[in-house]
Amino acid sequence: MNKIVLGLILGGILGILDGLTAWFTPAVRSGIVGIVIGSMVKGLIAGVLIGFFARKVNSLALGIVFGLAVGAFLAWIIAFMQHGYYFQIMLPGAMVGLIVGYATQKYGESSRLQRA
């Protein structure tokens, strides 16, 4: 599968799952729909960026580092907007980025130009 498409799908799915875990926190349960949508959009943006990076740079280590950085940065923006919960938001966000970074490098197909 194309690296960008893979990043997009994986980022979206993991973003939804990430958002759904908010259900276990009673304080924010009422706003779960918004959280899930926001988390999915964050995952999609991270997935596209990481997938695009994976297409340009063919390195597992760099892909993981970039994924981690993008995931952490996007999560930081969310936490900044929330005025708190930095650790609770940034750690899972960074991990999602790391997983997407690994997966796009490991399982994503290179573009035709790169294969040629």
């Binding site: 875990t21 276990f24 926190t25 750690l91 899972p92 991990m95 999602v96 790391l98 997983i99």
Partner: peptide
Amino acid sequence: LVLAYLFMRVLFV
């Protein structure tokens, strides 16, 4: 990686 992520989520919960 996925197990680590799930483990972390469980801990958070």
